[in-house]
């Protein structure tokens, strides 16, 4: 991938995706605050540019492993927002028939093959998907997303080493929002330069400004090119900032005011809008249309979710195994 600005449809899609992530996130928090949505929520505010960039850099054949903080990742795979929200409501119209919940969005057709609620656990799984892609002699690459805090987990390091050793087509996308739950990066890592640390495993490791959608797109694009060329895995540290609390309604008064204010100045969707308009990439009438459409999509998604049926009691013992036969009934 060259360092060019993508075509206009791609730019419009990126802006629309960033808006959808931001608006759906805010709407979900609102519904939760009203007590109407009973789900664990992990906001993606601050990661909108990274998710939009992945959506353009990756192909339809590529696969992704995500975590609990997955709304933007799911949108990057073009999973309809209505099925994402219906899953949060625990309904049949959700990606997992309401049985997985917000932490476990899955849509294999669109390449979101696994999401984990266990910090760091996605990386070994991505190694396995990378191995399958390599054995298949396919052109497919695997992206695994995880937070900065996940780089503390032992199996992350085992995965970096194994993927590098076997030259697997895996891109490790670290969504560094500077916080691991309530602890800042420098509070848990002796060397907080994660890209530098990971380079020691013998793979390409780059850090990029995660608020900058173009720079992020190009960096992830290069990593995917290397994966497809047989040059092995890459680690991309997208440096962003968490614009909310760790989870839906959690307190974040401990976040330094100046740091948060500086990050909010760079709020990805509005910043991208200004850039698109000022550089003549997209005109303001089109931008407004995108905004209205995004609002309508969010409204429709929540309405769909709230009207979608609950799973029936039969679902309780279905999907435990391939066949329910022989499953202990109690």
């Amino acid at each position: 991938m060259t360092n060019t600005v993508p075509d206009r449809p791609a730019l419009e899609w990126m802006y629309s995706t960033m808006l959808l992530a931001k608006m759906a996130d805010e709407r979900a928090a609102l519904e939760a605050r009203k007590g109407l949505l009973q789900a664990a929520l992990y906001p993606v505010r601050g990661l909108e540019a990274v998710c939009a960039a992945m959506g353009v850099a990756m192909t339809d054949q590529d696969q992704m492993v995500s975590s609990y903080r997955n709304l933007g990742d799911a949108l990057s795979r073009r999973i309809p927002l209505r099925t994402i929200i219906a899953e949060a409501y625990g309904r049949m119209g959700g990606t997992s028939k309401g049985k997985g919940g917000t932490m476990h969005l899955t849509d294999t057709e669109r390449g979101l093959v696994a999401t984990t609620g266990i910090v760091g656990a996605g990386m070994p799984i991505a190694v396995g998907l990378g191995l399958a892609a390599q054995l298949d002699k396919s052109n497919r690459a695997v992206v695994v997303t995880f937070g900065d805090g996940a780089t503390s987990i032992g199996s992350a390091h085992e995965s970096f080493n194994l993927a590098a050793l076997w030259k697997l087509p895996v891109v490790f996308v670290c969504q560094n929002n500077q916080w691991g739950e309530h602890t800042p990066l420098a509070g848990y890592a002796a060397n907080p330069n994660l890209a530098e640390r990971t380079a020691a495993y013998g793979m390409a490791a780059e850090a990029v400004d995660g608020f900058d959608p173009m720079a992020t797109l190009h960096t992830i694009g290069r990593a995917l090119d290397r994966a497809r060329a047989g040059d092995g895995p890459s680690f991309v540290e997208c440096r962003s900032y968490r614009l909310t609390g760790h989870s839906g309604l959690s307190d974040y008064s401990y976040v330094p005011k100046e740091e948060l204010a500086a990050a909010l100045e760079r709020d990805p969707a509005p910043t991208f809008r200004t850039w698109l308009e000022q550089n003549g990439h997209v005109d303001s009438a089109t931008l407004q249309n995108i905004e209205h459409a995004a609002e309508a999509t969010v409204d429709e998604a929540f309405a769909f979710a709230q009207e979608s049926p609950h799973p029936s009691q039969d679902e309780l013992l279905l999907d435990v195994y391939a066949s329910p036969e022989g499953v202990p009934t109690r």
């Binding site: 789900a39 049985k99 609950h310 799973p311 679902e315 309780l316």
Partner: peptide
């Protein structure tokens, strides 16, 4: 029951 814990609050 012999199942992972379902997310849906309607499944007991």
């Amino acid at each position: 029951t012999y199942s992972p814990v379902p997310f849906s609050q309607q499944l007991h």
